[in-house]
Design a protein around this nucleic acid. Structure first.
Lengths: 335, 335
DNA sequence: CTCCTATGTGGAAACGGTTCCACATGCTTT
DNA sequence: AAAGCATGTGGAACCGTTTCCACATAGGAG
């Protein structure tokens, strides 16, 4: 059994309150007494119970991080950013995977509330407004990342998806492409909608008519990118370029193109979104739109911390990162 | 403020103990009473405090997962395995990144102990025996994954690294290679040592003399693979094949080879280790030795759970997975 | 010399649950 | 009729901290 503060007090020949004071560096303690207490602590191998502390302090120095799937290469970087920023302010993080399953999300939120986390960061989860509003109503600080909840007054860390998509498509247009397909993300996600909107916007600016038959929806997975490519590359005349909803889909499309004997970038240009580590490593290296995932994680955590420690106006704040086009080897001028 | 069990009791017109009983499905409660209590719970939006529960139950249904860096593509799969298995038995997991820094590890362990986790899973962390023995002495259940601590009686989930390395090198030998280099992992890690030993063993079986100048050590990173390649490909005569300590290093070597104008697999065969997702996606697709990361994570968690709930003999158990050679496109018969 | 303040210390209540024990009721068994 | 048991309920102690308050001492100010 773990020794308690009482054991320490007895061993050091002092009262409970005194031990607590040296542990927390609060109030007056004679240096000599402090020394005796510290000695007793290490003699007994005393490890204070954060549980007991949390009960009375009504805060746990703990946050919940809800991601769809840590195995998806976009999320580890965000997670790491959150973790690092959390560590710096003494917080520990609970990790939850939901697979975008609303039931799972609700379960995780419940678990986190029972554990009395000081706050929750949602990253790229389904848009279940009720969940978040419930949290907000219960006065649980929340930050949402990689997902825009428009009608909700919640702190968010976002990337300008529309702008990123525009940059990607403009790049293709600048290279002389006119027949540009889009393998979009899930239509129910704001992220997917915004990128699609950016795609349309860029086309419009270049006076290229929007052709719905060149847009197919997927689920941000490699497989759905592969499937989307099979449809899109079958269109006649075949598109000369394609903008994918994310890197994983782009890589799936690359694969489909290779199998179909379509050379990239010679016969087909491809642009992704995210700039996951893999993007630079595949062959040919993927042209993509970079999201600063690590920094987004960090920012989400610092925003959450500010919200937790108060002093922040009640209104939901938004931090919007600007995406950046990274030109590599999957795009090429059309001759 | 959150309503407490007392508020619920009052609202339902019953005693505290009764509320507790319906919450835990324990003891006798009249169905009608149960209904009233449940109603009061949802009326008040009552969320029980796991903190208070944990204090008296002396267990938190919480575990700590310590990984070097979630950003390293081998770890998300393990993490997911742990998480899934943990969820299934009602546990929540604290995630800690250490960057293999012993000081960070010690800090994280301390934090986890203060939080009174029911157990800790170490994955691929530095071999700080003192840390683990300290935990064991303090009767904190521990499982170690992806790291063999020989002289310690601790539960472990391992892969037969030596066997995997042998399979890789034998594959190269079967293809007619004789001058086979090894870009080894960090020499201080058991993993690195075992793979090196497997490499040597395979050479010996084929009566190929061991040439120390063909072995260079790295750190399991892409950069160190790149650096290792620069050294190894400079040896004369140039090796015709190389076995890398892990996939990341292999990919770094691929890159170095490409830059040096050495064609893979025509002029150089490369084998990796791990079979991270990326391995199948790069070009040419990487021949490698597969570790079942997700299953290793799952197994680690179930072992930990068995240890926590007791009934397991005191001796440290080992679960050893067999690695599997996956032949793709970076290896080729030498003509 | 008294009063006040700074310094130092200990006791007890509180945080929100679980669980042991006592007690009440209505049957069945001897 | 008394005893025993199954069912149903409530009170109080306890888990290990923090924190408020009371109290003690010593030195300086008036």
């Amino acid at each position: 059994m773990n020794p308690t503060i009482r054991d320490v007090a007895q061993a050091a020949g002092v009262g409970l309150a005194t031990v607590s004071r040296v542990l927390n560096d609060s109030g007056y303690v004679r240096p000599e007494t402090r020394e005796r207490v510290l000695q007793a602590c290490s003699d007994l191998g005393f490890v204070p119970s954060q549980l007991a502390r949390s009960m009375v302090r009504r805060s746990t120095a703990t946050i919940g991080l809800i991601v769809p799937d840590i195995t998806n290469p976009f999320f580890p970087a965000i997670t790491r950013g959150v973790e690092d920023a959390a560590s710096e302010v003494g917080y520990t993080v609970f990790l939850c995977n939901t697979d975008n399953d609303p039931a799972m999300e609700a379960l995780d939120v419940r678990k986190l509330r029972e554990r009395r986390v000081d706050g929750i960061i949602f990253v790229g989860t389904t848009d279940r407004h009720e969940l978040v509003t419930g949290l907000l109503a219960g006065e649980v600080p929340v930050v949402v990342t990689d997902r825009q909840l428009d009608d909700l007054d919640v702190d968010s860390v976002l990337v300008n998806n529309s702008l990123g998509a525009q940059a990607a498509v403009r790049h293709l247009i600048d290279l002389g492409h006119r027949r540009i397909a889009h393998a979009a993300g899930h239509p129910a996600t704001r992220t997917g909608q915004d990128r699609l909107a950016g795609y349309q916007q860029a086309l419009q600016e270049a006076s290229i008519p929007y052709d719905p038959s060149l847009v197919v929806f997927g689920e941000y997975t490699l497989e759905s990118g592969y499937a989307a490519a099979q449809i899109l590359l079958g269109r006649a005349p075949r598109p000369t370029a394609v903008f994918a909803g994310n890197d994983l889909m782009a890589i799936g499309m690359l694969r489909a193109a290779t199998e179909a004997g379509i050379a990239v970038p010679d016969e087909l240009s491809v642009v992704g979104f995210d700039d996951i580590q893999m993007a630079a490593l595949i062959h040919p290296a993927l042209t993509t739109v970079r999201q600063p995932a690590y920094d987004m994680g960090r920012r989400a955590m610092t925003m959450l911390h500010e919200r937790i420690t108060g002093g922040i106006p009640a209104a939901g704040r938004r931090h919007i990162f600007q995406p950046e086009l990274i030109v590599r080897r999957t795009t090429r001028r059309r001759d």
